[in-house]
Design a protein around this nucleic acid. Structure first.
Lengths: 213, 213
DNA sequence: CGTTCTATTGAACTGAGTCAACAGATGTGG
DNA sequence: CCACATCTGTTGACTCAGTTCAATAGAACG
């Protein structure tokens, strides 16, 4: 990416803060914009005609959201937390990709990472028990938490960006099963649940031992 | 990709036929080669320490197998049918990528396609019933079958490249459940099973209606 | 301080798993 | 070419993890 490209991107990109629930990309209408996530969390989900839903990916800063080279994506992208985005028009991005091998290289590397994430999740959905799924999810969030307080006395603490319903949609479970497994992990002293969204992990290795891998 | 690169690739690549079960890539040892699948089917799988296994992708010709820019892949790649491969050393591929934006572009496009496939499978594993999973799998194989006989009298016929155990590993089910669902789909006249591996679909739309999407 | 989300808990149900027996295929050597 | 062994796939009976339905309890918000 050269200097003139960078300046054009800065000029034509649009920085914005979006609230939870805001749709960035819908399976129905063709993709018109791309975004970089600067802060917050975005969920990617798929839905069956009868309403069953599956979250197929979570994007954290500084991930890129969008599907280059394809008019529609069959995916819905939605902000799950309050999110800071840098948005730019489709044509600009695609022209810049064609002009800048370095940009395409970066996007390729991110696609490979997303592919690894998706395949990890496939193993989770295909073969893990409910308890292992919930532990796997908690560990993933802990690792992505910017200010997960380090290992002082009380272990690591972090905030869950997703509701129970969203965790269920991510793990291929029901709300009730997620809730019950959290309660059981609490009973086994693997986690402490402080005010619903706030989780404390006294010993990370104990949690890792619950993930199945 | 320019002429000298192409000739170097041709000279240094190695064409070979491998039998079912042959491992192309292992989670343990670092990746030393990359391959193009010229014919046949390759499975990508992940395993938990206790032996539970999940197939996270199937590669058909002319897919590329390998994970550029990462010494190890955490994936195992194995031929499921007799397969024709074009193999070349890691360093050659990575040098060629760095020299040829067009090559990287092609690989990027394939990665995006694999990502779409992985996410489709996530929806299947997270939210579909056993019957829907089996129907989804059959439809996928039918669409990838090179000589799936067209719609004459008896509908479409094709060969399953996977054993029941592999189908189960792909769909997050057990062998028994796969077998039972095939029997039930046969009972509903959605498919006919001719000699275990050979499937006939009288009416493709009937099968599509069983996939859940 | 009521209304409305969001989350927890309980009881009953069920789809898929487990365990076990059997049946077809495929293959091998006498 | 046939008996035997070995895979691969099917079927049945039973179990159980996770779902469903329903009631309750906290949080958040005006």
């Amino acid at each position: 990416m050269n200097a003139s490209q960078l300046s054009e991107l800065t000029r034509r990109s649009h920085r914005q803060v979006v609230e939870p629930g805001k749709t960035l990309l819908d399976a129905e209408q063709p993709t018109s914009t791309y975004s970089n996530v600067l802060a917050g969390v975005v969920k990617l989900s798929k839905m069956l005609p009868d309403g069953r839903q599956q979250i197929v990916g979570l994007q954290f800063a500084p991930d890129f959201v969008g599907r280059p080279f394809s008019p529609e994506s069959s995916l819905k992208a939605e902000a799950v937390t309050s999110t800071v985005l840098c948005t730019f028009p489709r044509q600009l991005l695609e022209r810049m990709i064609s002009e800048s091998p370095e940009l395409e290289h970066k996007l390729y590397l991110q696609a490979l990472d997303e592919l690894d994430d998706a395949r990890d999740l496939l193993l989770t959905l295909g073969r893990k028990t409910a308890r292992e799924r919930v532990a796997t999810f908690l560990l993933m969030i802990a690792r992505h938490s910017p200010h997960a307080e380090g290992s002082e006395d009380g272990g690591t603490g972090f905030e869950l960006p997703l509701t129970r319903a969203e965790i269920a949609d991510f793990l291929g479970l029901t709300i009730e099963t997620v809730s019950r497994q959290l309660t059981k992990l609490k009973g086994s002293d693997v986690i402490r649940v402080e005010q619903n969204r706030r989780i404390r992990v006294p010993d990370m290795e104990l949690l890792e031992a619950e993930t199945g891998d």
